[in-house]
Design a protein around this nucleic acid. Structure first.
Length: 254
DNA sequence: ATGGCCTCGGTTCGAGGA
């Protein structure tokens, strides 16, 4: 069983790449963020033709999330019931006995900004909601773009990024509280090479210089942590023409 | 010192992302 997450930065632009990636990496579940499509524009037929069921919630221009699955999808819930939010950033569903949560955490723009406050409030509500969800669903995975690099090992240049948005102490504290629910960062369950990232800025040839951050994560409840045998970042799609600035992260479960 | 790119909406520039 393979679970994956990918912020595609517009599914309209990236649909061919998503289909190409699934053809060569036929994961069981793929969570997408930043689809940037209203629901009436979602490419249901193309995704079903590739062998996947899909649940999604979107809006115009910004945000939007989706869960693609080779197995039946049931009990779809959109957003966090504890947090009134016009922005479409969460969708969850049950697949093969697992509760799958697909999340697009707010970026936060800059420390101290209104958007940063929104990010921290959003994360607080996420923690409260997941605490209850874990009681209901022992086998739970939350996959997505967290917009948080958990430690300096996840940052290409920690000195340059110190106290900036995506790495600031309050954001990292929120990530730690998620881990304390408990949820495990699947990537860190295993030995990993250094300087592995999931996002690189489009500017300054950041990808070629590997100036990136690891901000896309798969967090697993204890029952799924026990089953997890690998977690890896697939850099290949970031090398394709007209790529997303993020690349997929994949967890393998027994 | 600053910004450098990409996407969208809606027109050729601004907002947002990270």
């Amino acid at each position: 069983m393979k679970l994956a997450t990918w912020n595609v930065n517009s599914l309209k632009v990236r649909l061919p790449q998503v289909l190409q990636w699934l053809a060569s990496s036929p994961v069981d579940v793929l969570c997408l963020q930043e689809t940037k499509l209203t629901d009436d524009k979602f490419p249901v037929a193309e995704i079903e033709a590739a062998g996947y069921q899909v649940a999604f919630t979107g809006q115009k221009t910004y945000n939007g999330v989706a869960i693609l699955s080779r197995h039946p999808i049931t009990d779809v819930v959109k957003n966090n019931p504890l947090f009134q939010d016009e922005q479409q950033r969460i969708i969850s569903a049950t697949i093969e006995g697992m509760r799958i949560v697909c999340a697009y955490v707010p970026n936060g723009q800059a420390v101290g900004s209104d958007k940063y406050d929104y990010k921290l409030r959003w994360l607080e509500a996420l923690i409260q909601w997941l605490e209850a969800e874990l009681q209901r669903f022992p086998s739970l995975a939350i996959l997505g773009d967290y917009n948080i690099a958990p430690t300096d090992a996840d940052v290409h240049d920690p000195a340059a990024w110190q106290d900036q948005v995506l790495v600031s102490a309050p954001e990292r504290a929120a990530f730690e509280r998620l881990c304390a629910l408990p949820l495990a960062d699947a990537f860190r369950l295993f030995p990993q090479a250094e300087k592995l990232y999931s996002w690189w800025d489009y500017r300054q040839m950041a990808f070629r210089r590997n100036r990136g951050l690891r901000i896309d994560h798969i967090l697993l409840s204890p029952a799924l942590t026990q089953r997890c045998t690998a977690c890896e970042i697939d850099k290949l799609p970031r090398k394709w023409e007209q790529p997303s600035d993020h690349t997929p992260v994949i967890a393998t479960l027994q």
